Amino acid sequence: MGLYTAAGTRIAKAAFPASAAPITDPEVVVTADVYGTRHSDEGSYYTGDTNDRAPEGDIKTLAFRAGQVVRQSQIDRMYSPAVIASISPATGPVAGGTVVTITGKYLDGVSDVKFNGASGTALKIVSPTKLTVTAPAGTAGARDVVLVDDAGNVTKTGGFTYS
């Protein structure tokens, strides 16, 4: 098979009219089987018989097989950024030590919680919708709370007030 220009001139392989495209969404090779989970709503198939209920908990399914080639954007879409719904209590002493509960969505990817740039301690991911952390010492006033998340940092401006 030959390739030709619109004018009918044959195009040699070395002269193919193309240039390097910027790689904004590279392909990657998955190196191990990766599974995703989704929550099974208990009772969603309930028909009236107490023995006929859908399974409780999470259902694990194969998302990517080892050796599969995928675009980075496909992987990125699997990680939703954290969402802060509430911070409680939203105030504490400048000495720190307040155990703070943060609720929201997609909190299971949070690896650090910063109060005005200083990391909290004793971070515990309770569930994808709840975490607890102990506030560090700070200076008086409303301070930003930043969730360091594997899908990107999320900030609640003035989310915690030191008094």
Rank of each mutant, 00 (worst) to 15 (best):
M1G: 15
R10L: 08
K13L: 13
A14N: 14
A14Q: 14
F16C: 00
F16A: 01
P17L: 04
P17C: 02
P17G: 03
P22K: 08
T24E: 06
D33V: 02
Y35I: 15
Y35H: 03
T37C: 12
R38F: 10
R38W: 15
H39D: 08
S40L: 11
S40D: 09
D41T: 13
E42W: 15
N51H: 13
D52H: 05
A54H: 13
E56V: 11
G57T: 01
D58Q: 15
D58G: 10
K60L: 10
T61G: 14
T61C: 08
A63G: 13
F64I: 10
A66G: 06
G67M: 05
R77Y: 11
M78L: 15
A82P: 00
V83E: 14
A85Y: 13
I87S: 09
S88N: 14
T91Q: 10
T91Y: 03
G92V: 03
G92I: 01
G92H: 02
A95K: 14
G96V: 00
V99T: 10
V100H: 00
I102H: 03
G104Q: 12
K114L: 11
F115R: 00
N116L: 06
G117M: 04
A118W: 05
T121G: 01
L123D: 00
I125T: 02
S127N: 00
S127R: 02
K130A: 06
K130Q: 14
L131C: 00
T132M: 02
T139V: 06
G141H: 01
A142Q: 01
D144T: 01
V148C: 07
D150R: 15
V154E: 01
T155N: 08
T155A: 10
K156Q: 10
K156F: 07
T157C: 04
G159M: 00
F160G: 03
F160S: 04
F160M: 08
Y162K: 05
S163F: 11
